[in-house]
Design a protein around this nucleic acid. Sequence first.
RNA 1: GCGGUCUUAGCUCAGCUGGUUAGAGCGUCACGUUGACAUCGUGAAGGCCAGUGGUUCGAGUCCACUAGACCGCACCA
Length: 901
Amino acid sequence: MQREFDRQYDPSRIERQWYEHWLRLNLFSCPDETDKPRYSILMPPPNVTGVLTMGHVLNNTIQDLYIRYHRKKGKVACWFPGLDHAGIATQSKVEAELYRTEGKTRWDLGREEFLRRVWQWKEQYGGIILEQLRSLGVSCDWNRTLFTMDPGASNAVREVFIRLFDAGLIYRGKRIINWSPTLQSALSDEEVLYREVEDTLYTLKYYCEGSTTDYLPIATVRPETIFGDVAVAVHPDDERYRHLVGTRVRVPLTDRYVPVIADSYVDPAFGTGCLKITPAHDPNDFEIGMRHHLPVLVSINPDGKLNEVAGRYAGMDRFEARRRIVEDLRAQELIVSEMPYKHNVGFSERSGEPIEPYYSDQWFVHMQPLAQPALEAVLQGQIRFFPEHWVKTYEHWMRNIRDWCISRQLWWGHRIPVYYAPDGRFTAARSEEEARARLELGPDVPLWQDEDSLDTWFSSWLWMLTTMGWLHDGKTEDTPVLRTYLPTDLLVTGPDIIFFWVARMIMASLYFRGVIPFRDVYFTSIIRDDKGRKMSKSLGNSPDPLQLIGKYGADAVRYTVLYLAPVGQDVRITVDPVTQDAPQMELGRNFANKLWNAARFLALKADEAQVGAERSPTLAEEELSLSDRWIRSRLHATIRLVEEHLSRYRINEYVRTLYDFFWHDYCDWYIELLKIELQRTEYTELRQRRVRFALSIFEDALGLLHPLMPFITEEIWHRLGLRDRTESLCTSLLPSYNPSWEQPTLEQQMEILKQIIEQYRMLKATAGLKPSERPVSYYRAENHALELLECHAALVAELARIDVPTPYTPSGKPAGALTAFVRDTELFLVVGEHIIDRERERLQAEYERLQRLLAQTRSRLANEQFLQRAKPEIVENERAKEAAFVEALAKVEQSLRYLTQ
RNA sequence: GCGGUCUUAGCUCAGCUGGUUAGAGCGUCACGUUGACAUCGUGAAGGCCAGUGGUUCGAGUCCACUAGACCGCACCA
């Protein structure tokens, strides 16, 4: 039976086919209820507007790794996928398109028609990213895909709003909020990014009433806000100004007089010690204004333009107005000084322009009561963070939590379920009828629903509940799915949304269901380019993952990204600015190719020996060679390590462990040894059993690798095992660990044998001999090493490409021989006398190295404290080292002496 | 201002609860196509583990400080 195996692995030929096949076999969908152990993960829902980024690749590969691993442990492993409606991002996108194609704004269309267009857009382009994720091989339960604007999720959102409203945890208030003039909407504190900006600090003259010479010097970076001034504040104890408290000063460029007030908020040591109070345009001024019962004078409109309060500057944009006002202030000599000034300015995370603090009616969630239990769940370890240090960040935020502004002046989103009556009263309600009932109004009284919608995160924070059907009809709280899969086991997300999402989910889950939403949270690395910049579309420094998958294969991309991503450390991926290629992916591609070729070799041998799908009979225990036992020991160590690393989320260690096993243990050594052993096995039947043994080791290891590289492992598993297409490595169980097969002593022996081979190779290379030459070799060894060499001389000869080494009994060394050492074993390779100089150099270096080591060891042993306090086995070890170094030194020294003779 | 992370080979990084002679991949150099693999093999070169001090019998590993890189939160005109 011959199988086709190309010399090179081509992922593009098999990946898509396998994915579709898995979907046909329905391997990823889970029942609502089960008696089996279960494991669940919530996918952080990507935006409908999103396309696959390297961040998604990293994040979803980790999730897929864990889901697949636990599925292969025999659990019902359910991964809940979904999509986020992304209010601002999506609305902006559709508005931009509308303006480009039809020259219209959303107000031209009206709310209803505009929303129809957004839905249309969503049907057409939305969710592309979910399709893209499939090319990565993710094994979600696609039947459970939820969109945050789906009716079920929307019902839950409405119900939650009403419940929190009734509980007094949601309130409406006139506040200073972060306003984006571009988006024409409020933003939460978390959506504002602060950046240092070079500005000018203007000190202005506020003339005292009735005086043309006395003034208060008042510094500001925003002279355009002076029209909103309602007072000037000084510190109550400030001797310079105390006499002025209660008098009035004139606002520059106006005829308006405002009072001088005393408030301890003012820092007398900072600046001029005088502060203008503009409650409508500064959060701190607002607080002071409230304390002193001052009016809130709005001078800048929501569109960022000054209004009639600003007199002749009305209608001007805030930045244009600043320039004009400064010119006029200069002209009228109202400026004391202008100084360059660095300070932090808040920018809209979404639209990029400076935030305008804006005084308006908004909806807030009172966070304090929700935060307390959520903080405890993490501090007490019910929820674990990986890496753990994020707990500090979480705690800091939770202890200083501020109320959450949830209203957005957007149309795309969940509309706030609040109704207003003509008399000004309002209530949250499921319908207009219910609102009437709640407000005790007759059926003919007109009601208005609030125009605003809710922050997108107000639906995301319910994700663990809504994905599992909670309140999808507005009533049913307890579903079989919730009982089965909540709390989930793992959440994988970026640390940048710890507040936006992770913290709020914990709060919502505890408040509404009384359970934690997830047990472990793994915060992924941030992917950066080779200059350390975060990858982003605007910088153009992010490769297109689909292009990489197309070029290198999904397995290779998954492999490389996880190999490069240690826990808690950012990942740097070098990207070619022209081709957008990421050459580091070769790491994964080469590994896949290595795997493929190892399988190709096994298939060749299996076909030669006419091994079919059967794996028995295999070698009996007493038939196992040193290399067989060794590779089995390595396999079981690997099984153990895989479990250890994954349970501690040391993902790159897991990757490295498998790399080492496949490449170094299995390919570099085991296959090479197997080749020789097969050559020497005369009986067909024994050869067959030997190949079966080699295959079974390889196949077990494939299972361990499958969660990371699902496509190639499935393909190889089928080819080697000639398995039926209805079987899948996705659902076949992982090999189980057998501690008695992990044999450290045996591994040590093998290690010595490997070193002996390597030393012979080194000698041969030093002599510059051709590979085809087989120089005569000898050894002088004792005990174990002697035994090893006697038993495996032929293997050593084959692998080192030398003549079969034989014991050398005379003292001294063979004529024309180079010498090398493995512990106390001496190895000789007869090469003639032509490279004495290099040999002497090498031995001299070795001599010095050993002397350094010996000195170190001796100084340790000379220390009384060390002998007394260190553990006995450490001391013993040190003594053994001393002896070994002394002996080795003597031998090297002797060799050097022979050389000079 | 508060909190956090990082600094190990030319590059990108591993190195777990302190204890064999500090590792890998890429890159470099030399050799090589022996029936799995040149997307490969063999060998070699390459490291005062950022600096200073401390704890300890013992520090790349723990602590403090310094320098540099970065992140989060807060923010006064």
